[in-house]
Design a protein around this nucleic acid. Structure first.
Lengths: 113, 113
DNA sequence: TCGATATTTCCAGAATTATGGAAATATCGC
DNA sequence: GCGATATTTCCATAATTCTGGAAATATCGA
């Protein structure tokens, strides 16, 4: 992932509604959610949600698929992995101060930092 | 790391100047950089850089230490690790679609996604 | 104390982003 | 085709963030 893509991805996630929406989609799993279902969960007006979804779409963080009148949205895990990779490189490049092995240990996840 | 902190961290990194600044600091390693040195590298006016540094500071992404008239700024790797952990949890929770082992393999870093 | 250097705060204008109602588009079942 | 449902686009307003000059603050060496 290049810097511009990482930037767009970070900016897309750096908004409360969009981060919450993405988390809902991740929790929903591979099936994803209908836009209407997501709208109900977030309690946002349609136009507002669409605007945020468009930002997430532009950042390639979600994939949608039309199923008749319903548009089903899913989290794009590949892009999230790409972002994590990018940040890991950024975090670890140069000084070797936080090697991937230490930042990715399963046992370390969930700790209070 | 809680959701609010992750949000502030993502928003802080979701700006070109701040992401570039953070990358410079990571590359600079444990010694960090003087604000003036960072300012020269970024080519930004002092007030502008200070505003961005304040955002990074509020997000706990940088640590600074005064050395006489110079303020030395360093990347806070712990916070970056915390963010990566948060995203990894978000990415992997629910569906098990992208386990940390796959997103953090050293061999996978650097791939084009 | 003074003058020089480093950085910040103050502040206001510029630019961008967010919000949501109303109208438009797409698809369905009949 | 028509009415109903799902979602988007359009658009204007509101809110936020960005930017950078000028003044203020902090520290130094003499």
């Amino acid at each position: 992932m290049d810097a511009d893509t990482a930037l767009a991805t970070l900016a897309a996630l750096g908004h409360e509604t969009r981060l919450t929406a993405f988390r809902e989609l991740v929790q929903a799993g591979t099936e994803g959610l209908a836009v209407g279902e997501l709208r109900e969960r977030l309690g946002a007006p349609g136009a507002t949600l669409t605007a945020h979804l468009n930002t997430l779409r532009a950042a390639d963080l979600v994939i949608d698929q039309r199923e008749g009148r319903v548009i089903r949205v899913r989290a794009n895990y590949a892009q999230m992995n790409g972002l994590i990779d990018y940040l890991t490189e950024n975090c670890c490049a140069g000084g070797g101060n936080c090697a991937p092995v230490s930042s990715c240990k399963p046992s370390k996840r969930g700790k209070k930092t």
